[in-house]
Amino acid sequence: MRQGEISLAGILALFSLYLMWKSAELPIGYMRGQGPGGGFWPFWLSVGMLLSCVAIAWNWWRGKSPASVSDEPLMDSFGWLTVLHVGGGVIGFVALISVVSMYGAVCLFLVYYLRFLGRHSWVLTLVLALFVPVLLFFFFEGAMQISMPQGLPFTQPFFDMMYDIIY
């Protein structure tokens, strides 16, 4: 944890410097007759971020924060594996939206999570994996009139069928 805290502060300080540089693409000072330039506000806020990182490092050096005096690892192997399975599942879910449509991705994500991570029965998994996307379809496309991504062309027959129902 101790090493992690100072590493994170270092990364955030670098990010703050990047934001300062990026903000400076627009004027950061006061322009007569026009007021502060477009980069003024984000530049000085980024300076605030950088100074906060310096203060965080100072506190770390003095051992003032709980993480700075902890010799424990950031996460054990179980923690990393859990984050990998769940976080990876969410990344896979978003990646699949452009392929199998939003509703298809919801269905596949629920099968993955409920069956393989949650170890629920196939019956419960399939009921929820089919029922939830259909319910979401009627709510968003029917009631709220918000179109979700439809993925690659092979999903079109499914959408045609569902639109026939709601229109």
Partner: peptide
């Protein structure tokens, strides 16, 4: 283990509904 995936689903679907952008989902 049922509530968690439903929250993830609502987050992603709700996130898209609000912004209509894949960039925002990432």
């Amino acid at each position: 283990t049922i509530l968690a995936p439903l929250i993830f689903v609502l987050s992603i679907v709700g996130g898209f509904a609000a912004s209509r952008s894949m960039h925002d989902l990432w």
